[in-house]
Every structure is written in C-alpha cells, then in structure tokens.
C-alpha cells in the first residue's frame, strides 16, 4: 500500500513543487507575450470591446510611417550604440586598472563606482538634472570656470540625448567594471607570468592575452547591455519626458505614450512586439553563447 503511495508521490511530487512557479510564469510572462502579439493585429477599442477589430499588419505599417515612431527608434538606436561604446570602453579600462591588484584604494574605487548602480534612477535623474541646470547648475559653473562654452544640456534638443547618455553611463559603468573584474580574476596567473618571461609589453599583453581570454564575458556583457539599453525609459521619463521636441523619446517611451496618452493599445502592442523581437534575438544569442562557453570549460 505504502509503495503505491510512494510511487504516486515520486511521479506527481516534482510537478507540485514547480506548479506555483510555473503558474506565475504562465500568467505573467507567457500569456502576456502571446496576448501582446495578438493585440498588435487588432484595432483595440477599450471603451467598447465589441468594436475591437482585426486589422492585420496595419498597426505596424502605420506605425513605421509615423515620424514619432521613427524618431523613437532612431533615438533608441543612438542611445544604445553610444551607451555600449562608452560604458564598455570605460568599464574595461577601469577593470584592468582597478582589478589588477588588491589594495584599499582599488576596492574603495570599485565600491564608489558601483554605488550609483544600486541607487534609484529617479534619484540619479533628479540629481543630474539639477547639476545640469543651465543657469544654476554646477556643470555650467565648472565649464565657465575652465573658460569653456556653457551648454544647455537637457534644455536643448541638440544636447539633451547626450546629457541623458552621460547620466546613464555614469550610473552603470561601476556595475560592468565589477563584472569584468570578476572575469579578469578568472584568468590563470601562469599565463601572465609566461608573457612576462617573453618580455611582452603591457599593451601587447592586454590585446594578445587579456582581451581574448575574457572575450566570452565581454560578449555576454554586450548582450546584457543591448537588452538593457533598448528598454531605456526611466532616465528619460525622469529627466526630459521625451523632450525637448521629441529629441529624447525612446521605443519604450513611445509604447508608454501610446497606452497612457493616446489610448491606442493596438499601436502600443505593435511597438511592444518590436521590442520583443530585439530582446528575443539577443536572448537567443545569449543562450547559444552560454552553451558554447560551457563546452569550452
């Protein structure tokens, strides 16, 4: 009797253990993704659901033709590109500089560079907006003191996006530095010793040894960064609200506006699917490379 019961639990037990977690994923990840895709093919009437009708690809066709969406897409691409270049470049330099030796100054520098990462984007956005105030901000005071030309920062459509990128980069450099330091520390000491014996210079050592050795981690960082940057929203919402003159709208900002300003849910869903495609491609790349990395080790 007991045996039968035992075998029953052996079979059913695991499903019971994962059931709550899988319910959560089904309800709040899988269903929303499917629903989002299907919504993007409808002209959604929220007040009168009976009037919601299937329109095929028309949401996409119309969306891609609007200047608003094109602007959002171009801005997002620009933001992502420069964030990746700046943040990857800076954090690589910092990682090599601060991670090579364990010392008090180095760990203090790591700790302070990492600090902005765990502070709310709301707080960071407000602080930088204040510092970037054209009249009373400390940035222009500094530029003035150095005899350089002052900037309008967030107030001008020419400099607003770069100011947002500056803020976001400042916030995230420390985090990626940390990850790259962890990667650097996984390189066996003996390889460096061998390079030292061969009298390889430090620049040569960096490009011939360090960089190739941590290239898998750099690739992950690239993918994580791309996903993170394509969903940029909070910085923009706090600092510029997309302005001036739509100079800082982004893909997610576009979706947000479609839902809560224009109440055009179908169009918003179409925008969401574009984000889904971008994230999907990156995710596939991520796992393909993850499985490769496991094989090499």
């Amino acid at each position: 009797m007991k045996n039968v019961k035992d075998r029953f639990w052996e079979k059913i037990g695991p499903y019971l253990l994962v059931a709550p977690a899988m319910t959560g994923i089904a309800l709040f990840v899988i269903y929303p993704i499917i629903k989002l895709i299907s919504m993007s093919f409808y002209k959604v009437n929220q007040l009168n659901p009976d009037k919601t009708k299937f329109v095929g690809f028309s949401n996409y066709q119309k969306m891609f033709k609007t200047a608003e969406f094109q602007k959002a897409l171009v801005n997002t691409g620009y933001y992502a590109l420069f964030m990746i270049l700046i943040v990857l470049g800076c954090s690589l330099i910092l990682a090599v500089w601060l991670g090579s030796k364990k010392s008090r100054v180095n760990s203090a520098a790591q700790a302070s560079a990492f600090l902005p990462h765990i502070i709310s984007m709301v707080s960071v956005g407000l602080i930088f907006q204040q510092m970037m105030d054209p009249d009373y901000g400390i940035f222009n005071a500094l530029l003035g003191a150095m005899g350089l030309q002052k900037s309008q920062f967030l107030r001008s459509s020419d400099s607003a996006m770069n100011s947002v990128i500056f803020t976001s980069a400042w916030k995230s450099i420390g985090y990626y530095t940390l990850i790259l330091i962890a990667a650097l520390q996984s390189i066996p000491e003996s390889i460096y010793e061998a390079a030292d014996l061969d009298n390889a210079g430090s620049v040569r050592t960096f490009f011939k040894i360090t960089l190739p050795m941590i290239s898998p981690q750099i690739f992950f960082v690239l993918i994580v960064m791309t996903i993170g940057n394509f969903k940029v929203f909070e910085t923009i919402r706090v600092m510029t609200s997309g302005g001036p003159n739509n100079a800082t709208t982004s893909l997610v900002y576009y979706i947000y506006n479609k839902v809560f300003m224009d109440f055009d849910v179908g169009r918003a869903a179409a925008g969401g699917v574009i984000l889904l495609i971008i994230v999907g491609i990156m995710t596939v790349l991520y796992f393909v490379s993850l499985s490769k990395k496991v094989h090499y080790q």
């Binding site: 990840v29 929303p32 629903k35 989002l36 929203f233 969401g272 984000l275 995710t283």
Partner: peptide, 12 residues
C-alpha cells in the same frame, strides 16, 4: 521569464 523585461509584459 528571466530574460523578458516588464516593458514587454506590462500592457497585457
């Protein structure tokens, strides 16, 4: 689920 950001799922 790990890779899907809330910016995609929030609308549904």
């Amino acid at each position: 689920a790990f890779m899907t950001p809330g910016q995609i799922t929030f609308l549904p």
